[in-house]
Design a protein around this nucleic acid. Sequence first.
DNA 1: ACCTGAACACCGTTCAAGT
DNA 2: ACCTGAACACCGTTCAAGT
Lengths: 232, 232
Amino acid sequence: MTTAANNGRSRKAGLSKDAIVDCALELARTEGQGALTLRRIGQEFGADATAFYRHFRDKDALVLACVDKMYSIAFDEFSAHSASSRLEEHDWQDDLRAVASTFWNVAQRYPGLTTLGFSRITGGEGEQRYVEYILRTIGRLGLPPQQIVIFYRAFVDSLLALSALRASADNLPSPIRQRDQNRWRQIYGTLPRESFPATRAHVDELDAVRPVEVFTTVIDSLLDSIARVANT
Amino acid sequence: MTTAANNGRSRKAGLSKDAIVDCALELARTEGQGALTLRRIGQEFGADATAFYRHFRDKDALVLACVDKMYSIAFDEFSAHSASSRLEEHDWQDDLRAVASTFWNVAQRYPGLTTLGFSRITGGEGEQRYVEYILRTIGRLGLPPQQIVIFYRAFVDSLLALSALRASADNLPSPIRQRDQNRWRQIYGTLPRESFPATRAHVDELDAVRPVEVFTTVIDSLLDSIARVANT
DNA sequence: ACCTGAACACCGTTCAAGT
DNA sequence: ACCTGAACACCGTTCAAGT
């Protein structure tokens, strides 16, 4: 007798921590945050939703595991990218720029997880590798310890927060996202010129800004500041 | 016959858009994101949860209205602060620093709303005032239009995203927030020194960083970059 | 014109029962 | 040792019925 929960879906192998994390990552990538429910995950395995609790304490533990796996994927992509570029040509600023852009790209691939996890400390392997790499890179510049750590946090927090800002907008139901975006033209484009001159003068550019350029601007600004303090 | 829903609670005046927004802001401030439910709001008025729908299309409309009201409150605090400081002494950088720090403070006062709204465009009065003021301030420096707008967005997005990063952490249930914070000492503090030298060297500083200093570092870095491009 | 209350389709989670 | 399935206490939302 086949279960009703598994009608037409691919039957996956048995439940396990890794299998559940992989399944959740795939759901986050292809269907977004809304699909990240225990009932939906159970369905993917043709199992009851509550079978999940045999492998994770609660949903929060699953989210942390998935977010850390996302960090591992991102760091692996950075490593591959870094290894393939010519060795002579990248200094610490190029390295951190590559860290930032690969992280941004992977974060946008899993917007639901980025939104759920951007303020968390996973303590997992993926996060550990990032912490050590970035801290080591900034640490080599010869700054005092407190300044190393404050720049480390400025860099990482900007990475996380700006990636989440973008992911959170992408995560909205499509009609709501459209309505938000339309406000630039429909509201800001029709504000009275006398009281909102600067807004009216820039409304086309405001509507057209590409988020990744904003991200790059903030990251470059930070790297400039670090370089200036470090005299390199 | 008194309703069971209103046992011991202050009976508020009748429902209206403004009354509901004020009630939701108060709930967000005193009880956090978890209290922002339609059933809870109805309870505050001694009314059925669904009475809400006579005044707002859906919960999203309420969130946008509350977030914009939060922006109005923050801008008012900035205006008051700005007017009270001596007039001669503040240039555009001081103004934007004051914008940033008042926004940060108000965002932390309503962490639930900050988390829910940081990636949204409300189109409301509070947001309009911020857009015009910041755009005008950066616009006065004589940069080309596209650079004005990219720096505007870099500033505003950093403001929103870093405030939300902090608010989101504050919004976690207390045991989870504690567990996250403890990972610095419990996990990063016990990583092997050979493979994680930089992490181990900085673990105390990492645990002790104050988020507002990180915020200030990013904002100051951006203002420096703008000043350098504008030659002021 | 405004509010009520049952109902619907969801959540995460617990727990006794099955194998 | 692992999974099932009913149940619980929640969500936002719809809709027919009340006043």
